[in-house]
Simulated scan of single mutants.
Amino acid sequence: MQITKFTDLALRVLMYLTQEVSSSPVTINEVAQQFDVPRNHLIKVVTRLNKLNWVIATRGRCGGLKLGIAPENLRLGNVLRELESKNSLINCAEPPCVLSGQCNLKEILDHGLNSFYEEMNKYTLQNIVDQKTQQAVIKLHQRYSA
């Protein structure tokens, strides 16, 4: 299984927002520049994260982005499940499979996917940004401020 670019960028945004290095709010332009991604794509990601209440986005001259949830409360499996919207790895109905209802493949793959999400839920956003990742994110913030 490979996550989408949307989910990958969402995880990077969440990681970036865990560190408040400057008194200035983090902006869309800052994140777009830091991760070298199109601003319009980033807006879609941030809008989704905002709807999930994982990010608080404030508009206006003094606006910006900040985490809407404590990093230790955001489980990685829940993030992946929500953003990937995958509850099943295959669809036996489209196109119709002649083995549908007569084989175990879908059930086994669904079990594996659920096990993957459960395993990922052992980790939080805080686990992701501990130690070396935290230092890398802080350096990104400092690079932008300089």
Rank of each mutant, 00 (worst) to 15 (best):
M1P: 07
T4Y: 00
K5C: 01
A10H: 03
R12L: 14
V13C: 04
Y16F: 11
Y16D: 10
Q19G: 00
E20I: 10
V26G: 10
N29V: 10
Q33W: 08
Q33H: 12
Q34L: 02
D36E: 01
V37G: 06
R39V: 05
R39S: 03
N40A: 14
N40Q: 13
H41V: 06
K44H: 12
V45S: 11
V45Q: 09
V46F: 05
T47I: 02
T47S: 11
L52M: 12
W54E: 01
V55D: 04
A57F: 12
A57D: 09
A57G: 02
R59D: 14
G64E: 02
G64D: 08
K66W: 13
K66H: 13
G68V: 03
A70P: 12
A70H: 14
G77S: 04
L80E: 01
E82Y: 02
L83E: 03
S85W: 06
K86C: 13
S88M: 08
I90A: 01
N91L: 14
C97K: 02
C97P: 02
S100P: 00
G101F: 00
G101P: 11
Q102G: 07
N104L: 03
N104W: 11
L105D: 03
K106H: 05
L109S: 08
L109Y: 06
D110R: 09
D110V: 11
H111E: 14
N114R: 11
F116P: 03
Y117F: 13
M120V: 07
K122P: 00
T124W: 02
Q131L: 05
Q131N: 10
T133I: 14
Q135P: 08
Q135D: 14
A136C: 09
V137L: 06
I138Y: 08
K139E: 11
A146R: 12
A146E: 10
